[in-house]
Design a protein around this nucleic acid. Structure first.
Lengths: 139, 139
DNA sequence: TTGTTCCTACGAAAAATTTCCTAACTTTTA
DNA sequence: TAAAAGTTAGGAAATTTTTCGTAGGAACAA
């Protein structure tokens, strides 16, 4: 029997609600988002250059786990497997932002804004950029 | 010999750069921020009502650890110890926000804003509030 | 007093996350 | 060809975080 529509299985883990990455997993995702499909070797080199010293097999293991979780896809037709982020950067970051706002600011974006604007590190340039965004929203 | 100025010790952990709380520790801090000085019993009840089922001694242990880390202060002159957040809500949240923006948006507040504004969950009311904030910044 | 309930301290188990060692195989180099 | 270097898989150790059991007192009620 052929079942064409399997949407009733949508409660299962899927790309709609991807597993939440751990800190280390997020670091790896960032590399994949920034640099595109990469080998373990490349990702590991990036981490060592930009983040911290980490053994090759540690990165390998982590990426294998991420594959099992569905956080990355992988092309293993060649010896050097090529990994790709399986979750869109925007979607994932939106998800993390949502959760962040929820836990810290009770879901209130404007409260977060006030924190952000009261923060020394938010420069005048940033402020200008934010005004621009709001302006464009008007149009 | 009396040493009046110990500012050269400022690299040590202090309230300036408080230890980063874990997820569970943050939950407890939120209760203390919201409700003020509290006993373990009270915090535990709050968590069970508002968050998730958790055993009393688990909460106790966690709060003891937080005391060692300097995340909370405690008055143990009475049998029922009374705990207080040792870090200001605003400071801690600002710190967490900073780190969040740093790791996810390369430190760019305006990039975060765009995500936030592109988000369905940011209602019109929120937008209005944000505009108000910016207006007041002008004055 | 005596038993019940509540409290803290402490240690350890359990769970989650991160790290790395080893084996087996492939590719490259000499 | 043979050694060296690179790659994956798998397991297990190490670390961090979370949970809870137990013991020993203190407060309280009968």
């Amino acid at each position: 029997m052929f079942i064409g529509n399997i949407s009733y299985l949508s409660f299962m883990k899927s790309k709609n609600t991807p597993a939440e990455p751990t800190k280390s997993e997020l670091e790896i995702l960032q590399v994949l988002w920034k640099c595109g499909p990469s080998t373990v070797r490349f990702v590991n080199d990036q981490l060592n250059e930009e983040k911290r010293e980490v053994n090759y097999t540690s990165t390998l293991k982590l990426m294998q786990i991420m594959f099992e979780k569905g956080l990355v896809d992988r092309d293993d037709s060649q010896m050097k497997h090529v990994y790709t982020a399986a979750v869109e950067e925007k979607k994932m970051k939106a998800m993390l932002l949502d959760k962040f706002v929820e836990t810290l600011y009770d879901g209130s974006a404007s409260t977060l804004m006030m924190q952000l604007l009261g923060n020394k590190k938010t420069s005048k340039k940033e402020l200008e950029a934010i005004r621009e965004i709001l302006k464009k929203l008007d149009q």
